[in-house]
């Protein structure tokens, strides 16, 4: 079973600082990590390989230093690594990104599964998985919560919806976005790290992908970010201290507040 796991390198967002003047993110000193939600896809892919044999190839698109993210995934147990990189790709929206990823995936044929996290923690769109499936014209399963078995070239997957779990059976090759319930991602082993350090990571630019230049970067992006602002947190922020006002008074005021806002 050959699996391609798509990952994204993202800034560690738990301590994002914003430049108040320009409204952009301060990138200095911000650590880059593998999108935490992609780790679940890596875990799912490695488990499938353990059960069914085959290879897991990690694929990323980003600046040259995203090679670090590719090596991290290899340290977890992915066999091969590819980074799609080049100035031509800069400014790609999810449409252009889905196109490039789908071209890279095709170049890695034959394969059975393309997997990735349900979304990345920076852009937070969750659009590239479905986008890649559309470009490849392949079956799609989003929000996978459990792999239920592979049989006769088909994979059965349970997925998490708002009101419960839906089970789908998909012919392979297909595209799957993987959620958190799939299982806790393993940590890289020391041997894995050593292997990943020495491994070759293929670097593919636009020429290698045989892509249509008009479909890359800003040119190939139907959407355009025209403004970035810092969200205002406008909260009245009344805070009561139980030690001072007592539970009864606090409960009274809180229920008043809920009533005023029609929330009871």
């Amino acid at each position: 079973m050959n699996i391609i796991v798509c990952i994204k390198q993202v800034p560690e967002t738990s301590n994002v600082r914003m430049d108040e003047e320009t409204g952009t993110m301060v990138r200095e000193g911000v650590e880059s990590i593998v999108n935490p939600l992609d780790l679940y896809a890596i875990e799912a892919a490695i488990r499938l390989r353990e059960e069914n044999g085959g290879r897991v190839t990690v694929l990323s698109m980003g600046p040259p230093n995203a090679e670090k993210a590719v090596r991290e995934a290899m340290a977890m147990g992915c066999d091969d690594g590819v980074l799609v990189s080049g100035r031509e790709f800069a400014g790609s929206d999810t449409h252009a990104t889905s196109y490039c990823i789908s071209r890279a995936v095709l170049k890695l044929s034959p394969f059975d599964l393309v997997m990735m996290g349900v979304r990345a923690t920076d852009g937070d769109t969750g659009q590239v998985g479905p986008g890649v499936a559309a470009f490849l014209d392949m079956p799609l399963c989003t929000y996978a919560s459990r792999m239920m078995g592979v049989e006769d070239g088909r994979i059965t997957i349970e997925r998490l919806l708002e009101s419960g779990y839906e089970t789908l059976r998909l012919p392979m090759p297909c595209v799957v976005t993987v959620g958190k319930e799939i299982g806790y991602p393993r940590l890289p082993t020391l041997r894995g790290k050593q292997r990943a350090r020495k491994a070759d990571v293929a670097m593919w630019g636009p020429a290698a992908l045989e892509v249509d230049a008009a479909m890359l970067g800003l040119k190939g992006s139907p959407t355009r970010v025209v403004k970035i602002t810092k969200p205002k947190v406008t909260r009245s922020g009344r805070v009561l201290d139980l030690a001072k006002v007592g539970a009864h008074e606090a409960a009274h005021e809180l229920v008043d507040f809920l009533e005023e806002n029609n929330l009871l």
Partner: peptide, 9 residues
């Protein structure tokens, strides 16, 4: 970015 920015698109 985790709700840290608002983008207009």
């Amino acid at each position: 970015i985790g709700g840290n920015i608002l983008a207009t698109i």
